[in-house]
Design a binder for these strands. Structure first.
Length: 747
DNA sequence: AGCACGCCGACT
DNA sequence: GTCGGCGTGCTC
């Protein structure tokens, strides 16, 4: 690997496009033995000292300005060539720097080294001295304004402060030099969590025919050590977890390791218990609630080969397994696999790439697979489809009823609860059984709906629900189509066309009126804000101290309450009319999942779905537990409008404190894109600019462009080209651009 | 990201 | 002229 006289190739730890390449450094004789691929080094870089990653050895085009490596930061490599390849792929596909991708892969281990430090800027003077300080800066208006800003907002970072005032960061530096501002490091606190020991029972359960056949197929490719992706489409209760665990046993038998990704570990304590019982001390659990030290210990155990089964959330996909042989992604359709800030990667995509590099098997499991995966698993596609159609306990799926809220409205009931739901709840309460009332999170963006006929206005070009704005207009946030909000429903002429929606508190209030005898508990982000109250509520409900639990998404996922025989969905329309092309898919997945919550114990269950759109296929298909019907209805819609999985989307989000500047910046970006595309003959369209659904956050305005392309490589190439051409403009007024490839939501 | 350079306007 | 403020180019 190391060539005689070769220079070390180093990627410096800067997250900028312009420095995203290898720089060559000479290796001094004293460090000859220590410098190897995978370690971090300290290098001189443009009059500074920076950390860098050694990625190889080679020769630069010219050797005139070569400098020497100043020191090494690691005694042994912190990344393997496989993980470096993964980082390069991420940089290419998610349009970030290689250093940033590497940092993301390594951070769980490296964060512990030095404690995480946030540098905050504070004023160095008292309020009474501000006047005289400002006088001394009379010839430096930007500094004066910045100092004032810092007095009002102490504790921002250097960059945040500069951006908040709209000046370059060098103004902050000048004030620090003059002693008017100080920069102080703040250590972030850490907390500790203990894990209880459990006894090990390594024997698997006996599989039914369907499970056995499925396992045999997967086992063949695991034993051959071949790259292969399986989509395991199994209905709720069909025993997917047992298939995972036996596939893992087979993987361990070949001397390789396995990763299991779950959407949210806090919601699947049963899964963690099951894995610990089966695999004992070989299990490493990785999730966000771990302290730095604990996470470091787990990563260490994984790297040393001590823990060969990794169970974790999104970022566990970067676990440093020596020879991964199997990647399981449970509930593969979940949007939480997509990181939605900073480096916006999708853990499912990363897993498939990593498996390809390592020659491993990927097992995607879901009762309601994403359309992307279903399309790839259809005939002739790259994935192999495996189906589990029988429930292991032989129990029937819960009966689901759809209640037409338009009829309730016509019948004079404008409340939250339909008569059907009230009657059903009372029946369950009389029998001493439990009820879950599920309320979809109220949309961040409001739409208007006609409560007489269920009509929601959509964009004629994009088929996306139009968002209601306070100025009385409706707007499409993909293409910026705008109309006046009508006073009367254009379909039925009713006056009841307005935005509506109830929060969990409102539902709780009304429920107390209807069911005064029942013991009620509410679970939402407000009531679970305190640490530990989440599991407290869940335990109280499981112990039957509560009759009715009211909650949002939180109660829909993975929880198993044997006493629940009725699940009520208060309002299916909120998800159905999210301003997103995936709204119907989300609704179907959510309703299927929620309905599956009822009747998990001995008693048969029932689900009641309230909606103003009882005929929509995502609702009727979910009520009938019919995945194929949903697929066959939704696919043609996606195809005709050119949405994924038949295309690739990107969202460019522009933010700036001045609304005119963002609008202008986004408009310029669109022009740049159109220029690049002109005459290229590429099938790429650019929608917008339009205000983002959350049009202003923390005093920054947000506008966006949506780009649709037939192929992903074309999409990223055109974006990369436009970004580098935009970077040439003046930086002072340029809005900040954030690129999201195949976004899940569009907030 | 952040250092050094160079342009430009203000004042001895 | 010359000094200080502030944007910008370049980094093995």
């Amino acid at each position: 690997m190391k060539k005689i006289g070769a220079f070390a190739e180093v990627i410096v730890a800067l997250n900028t496009r312009s420095t995203d390449r290898v720089f060559h450094y000479a290796v001094p004789a004293a460090l000859q033995d220590k410098v190897e691929v995978g370690i971090r080094v300290l290098v001189p870089f443009n009059n500074r000292s920076l950390a860098g990653y050694v990625t190889g050895f080679g020769f630069p085009e010219n050797t005139v300005n070569i400098k020497e490596i100043a020191g090494v930061l690691d005694a042994e490599p912190v990344f393997t060539p496989e993980l470096l390849e993964l980082a390069r792929w991420m940089a290419e596909n998610y349009l970030c720097s290689t250093a940033e991708a590497l940092q993301r892969i390594l951070s769980p281990r490296l964060l512990v080294k030095g404690q995480r430090v946030v540098k905050q800027v504070h004023p160095a003077i008292q309020a009474k001295d501000l006047e005289s300080a400002l006088n001394s800066l009379s010839r430096a208006p930007k500094q004066a304004a910045l100092l004032k800003k810092a007095m009002i907002n102490p504790g921002l970072t250097r960059k945040e402060l500069a951006v908040a005032e709209g000046v370059s960061a060098s103004v902050v530096d000048t004030l620090v030099e003059k002693g008017l501002l100080v920069i102080s490091p703040e250590n972030s606190p850490r907390r500790l969590v203990r894990v209880a020991q459990t006894s090990v029972d390594s024997n698997g359960l006996v599989l039914n025919d369907g499970q056995k056949e499925t396992l045999d197929q997967v086992a063949r490719d695991i034993r051959q050590g071949m790259f292969k992706v399986f989509l395991l489409h199994g209905i709720t209760g069909s025993g997917k977890t047992e298939v995972y665990m036996q596939a893992i046993s087979i993987t361990l038998g070949t001397g390789r390791q396995a990763v299991v990704l779950v959407p949210e570990i806090s919601l699947t304590p049963q899964m963690v218990d099951m894995f610990r019982r089966r695999f004992g001390g070989q299990v490493a659990v990785l999730h966000s609630a771990l302290s730095g030290g604990e996470r470091y210990d787990e990563w260490r155990r994984i790297k040393e080969g001590e823990a060969s089964v990794v169970l974790g959330t999104r970022s566990a996909i970067f676990a440093p397994l020596p020879r991964p042989g199997l990647f399981v992604i449970d509930e593969e359709h979940e949007s939480s696999y997509k990181q939605d800030d900073h480096l916006r990667y999708h853990a499912r995509e990363v897993a498939i790439k990593r498996a390809q590099i390592a020659g491993a098997v990927v097992l995607l499991g879901s009762a309601t697979p994403s359309l992307e995966s279903q399309l790839k698993a259809s005939a002739g596609g790259p994935y192999q489809l495996l189906k589990l159609t029988d429930r292991i306990d032989g129990r029937p799926l819960p009966l689901a009823r759809v209640v037409d809220m338009r009829l309730e409205m016509k019948g004079g009931n404008s409340g939250i609860f339909s008569r059907t739901l009230v009657a059903a709840v009372n029946k369950r309460l009389d029998k001493g059984e439990q009820v879950l009332l599920f309320l979809n999170r109220r949309g961040y963006a409001t739409f208007i709906i006609c409560r007489e006929c269920g009509l929601v206005l959509k964009c004629p070009r994009c088929d996306i629900s139009l968002i209601y704005h306070r100025d009385g207009r409706l707007r499409c946030h993909y293409c910026n189509y705008t109309v006046r909000a009508p006073d009367l429903c254009p379909s039925c002429g009713s006056q009841s066309i307005k935005h509506f929606g109830a929060g969990t508190q409102k539902v709780e209030e009304e429920a107390r009126q209807f069911f005064p005898e029942a013991r009620l508990l509410r679970m939402d982000s407000d009531s679970t804000a305190r640490k530990g109250s989440h599991s407290k509520i869940i335990n109280a409900f499981r112990d039957r101290q509560v009759d009715i639990l009211i909650g949002t998404q939180m109660i829909a996922k993975g929880l198993d309450f044997p006493g629940v025989t009725l699940v009520g969905v208060i309002n299916a329309d909120t998800t159905l009319h999210m301003p997103d092309f995936r709204a119907a898919e989300r609704t179907f997945q959510l309703l299927t999942q929620v309905a599956g919550r009822a009747g998990r114990g001995e008693l048969p269950g029932e689900a009641i779905i309230q909606t103003y759109n009882p005929d929509h296929y995502s609702i009727t298909a979910a009520a009938a537990h019919d995945c194929d019907r949903f697929y066959l209805s939704e696919m043609p819609v996606r195809r005709s409008l050119g949405y994924p999985p038949f295309s690739h989307l990107a969202r460019l989000l522009f933010t700036h404190e001045d609304e005119e500047e963002v609008k202008k910046g986004a408009g310029q970006a669109k022009e740049t894109l159109k220029n690049i595309l002109a005459g290229s003959g590429k099938n790429i369209s650019v929608l917008g600019p339009a205000p983002a659904p959350l049009s202003k956050i923390k005093d920054r305005y947000r506008w966006q462009l949506v780009i649709k392309a037939s192929r992903r490589d074309l999409l990223r190439d055109v974006i990369r080209e436009s970004l580098s051409s935009l970077e040439k403009g003046p930086s002072s007024i340029r809005p900040v651009v954030n690129v999201d490839i195949n976004p899940q939501g569009m907030m």
